[in-house]
Design a protein around this nucleic acid. Sequence first.
DNA 1: TTTAGTTTGTCTAGGCAGCATACAAACAAG
DNA 2: CTTGTTTGTATGCTGCCTAGACAAACTAAA
Lengths: 398, 398
Amino acid sequence: MTSKATPMFEARASGQSSLSIVLGLIHEHRAITRSEICAITGLSRSTVAKLLTTLVNLGFASDTGAEQIDRVGRPSMGVDASKELLAISVHPEVDYLEVKAVAFNGTIVHSEKRLYDEPIGAHQAVEDMVQVIDNLVAELETSDTSYRILGIGVIVPGQINSSTGIVRQAPHLQWSEFPIRDLLTQRLSMPVFVANDASLGCKAEMAYGAAKGATDVVYMHGTSGIGGGVFMNGTELKGFRGYAGELGHMRISSGKELDYSGIQGTLEALVRRDDLEAVLGLKNVSDEDLEVALLNNRTPESTALARKQIEALGIATANLANIFNPEVFVLAGFLRFLYRFDQNYFHRVIKKHAIPAVLEGMQVFVNELGANSLAIGASELVFQEAIADPTRYATRVK
Amino acid sequence: MTSKATPMFEARASGQSSLSIVLGLIHEHRAITRSEICAITGLSRSTVAKLLTTLVNLGFASDTGAEQIDRVGRPSMGVDASKELLAISVHPEVDYLEVKAVAFNGTIVHSEKRLYDEPIGAHQAVEDMVQVIDNLVAELETSDTSYRILGIGVIVPGQINSSTGIVRQAPHLQWSEFPIRDLLTQRLSMPVFVANDASLGCKAEMAYGAAKGATDVVYMHGTSGIGGGVFMNGTELKGFRGYAGELGHMRISSGKELDYSGIQGTLEALVRRDDLEAVLGLKNVSDEDLEVALLNNRTPESTALARKQIEALGIATANLANIFNPEVFVLAGFLRFLYRFDQNYFHRVIKKHAIPAVLEGMQVFVNELGANSLAIGASELVFQEAIADPTRYATRVK
DNA sequence: TTTAGTTTGTCTAGGCAGCATACAAACAAG
DNA sequence: CTTGTTTGTATGCTGCCTAGACAAACTAAA
């Protein structure tokens, strides 16, 4: 009733319908009142009421009774995001396949992990995915709750074109030119979405983690190699063919060290997880163990290596700060250990290599979301699609 | 009447009103027929007719008679973009101040250059701008045509926050923390917009030059230093505070060479215009003369230097390709001379340092627009604002 | 307990953008 | 001159949203 011009414009600037905007709010907040929706969107009470009835009829939300007290005026009625609409996340890795089910209200409904002794091929991985998902569907159907699956989100640890759904190159899995999306769609007869793992991690941290509320975010994820995700002005940087964000291959040194792609002097060649393991006398340990060892058993050798890696990471960060002028920089995976090892040194390196203007107000965080980070990101792939066009994903027509 | 879903969605995705979309088309095409507008936007003929009458009434366009022949059916009526609505571009540099007037239909109506023997301060520059523009306004008012100025676009060779309008640092001009937009707005009582020079060059090349039609573009401009502009998915990369695109400060080598900001091993430190001049025995020559000398008087020394610089430029380009996966890469300023010096070597360097996926379909061009490039970019700042909300910039109400 | 003030939900009428349809106008080709 | 094609114009309709009036549900004060 008061300020409506600004929020309306902001909401409309993204070009969505009001139905999508309201549904997005419900999904983001999990639970929200009608009056809050009015205030945020600038829509009138009558419009919000009408939109909510259609959303409830479509099964995306459910009405709850009047909420809060202790304030003057009639209490506003609330809506909850559905607990029954699900997205299934699928994460193939070298030595495991992880499948989770995430509800529209963010709860993890199901989680399972299949371990492998030796790497399996791409086609066998698809077979396993289909099997696990078929079993999961059967299990969910026997449940008391009437679940409904909106789609599948596949987390790909490698270069993937999210438009065509073809894995271009996944070095660790040793997949290449593999049309994973179409194969899965064919077998599962459900909408399937695919994206790079770092991109999904960034998406999740922005929605519910360290970068919540920020619109300009650079995310770097260290596993074996170093992957990246970038969001500018709230939207993901995809590039022409969808391969944008290969931050690990940035060359920052004239040195001769080679990375996994055989390129010299890159970030990935200078900042290596297995080097850290080696200097600590470890091999193939979990992230948790590596972090503890690195931070607590400091030797002259490990300190020297860590500082060398921190310097390289700092230079890369400074480069990216100059290029993107981000609001938030998120370090995930083993990069967070480096940051925690000596964050003062890290910031000194950045300060030395970035122009002052881009560092004003820039914040560096480590990832907040833990094991479910990628699954949440993958579920967002599915949910954002449903939010963009809720009527296509209708469940009950009533 | 046939396909309407797709273009509608595309046009609406940017969140503009139909009025803005149609006005944008008129501006982009300079002259266009009603039926073409229908085909591109997917709007119905009646809607287009209604929108056009309001745009003509607002003074943005004028009806022309029926055009083209040789086709079956009633010939479609055309509209021309106004020749009377102007944007004024202002370009302060170390040794000159250049002011141009660009009409809504793209024609350069006026152009003047004031030369300086020695650098003038920021405040004196503003005085000069006001003086030149006041004179220009007086001159335009005596003209036969009834011109009307929509706003001013200032081209800033340095770091500027386009939201606050404050020049953060312009190293060559030696300005810093200078609120140029507010000062000019105060003195001129017109809308004033400001942006970085490379960003405007990129904007112009995308609208009417080498990158026409592309949506994912990286642009590098070599003058004294190296500036950059990046557009992803059609919109400019601004970053948190608007300083994104400082591509020249990217560190790509462990060498000790310093750039203008005192940072080691950066692109700007390795690729220097004055080094090229020096090796050719020149000093302070024009771009044209430098290009002729570099390409035609090849000595072993100049070739060695050029190749060294091409290698650095190629590494930087590869880094940016990995990061952005652009569709088009534009080299402007003296960087285009390097490209022309040995473009095969340049491409070989890129191929060595970029991952194959991001190079598929990527094209490298030199800038096409000449002396008016920046003025056109600056005029776009003004015109895009007017296009976004035509009613606010109304001239005749009729 | 009563009263006043505040905030919210619901209903109705209406504005506005855009579409489909019908019809007239202006062209080419036979 | 007729036919077929394409475009401009006028009319009524639909869908989305708002404003305003009213009722409902709460707090705070008398």
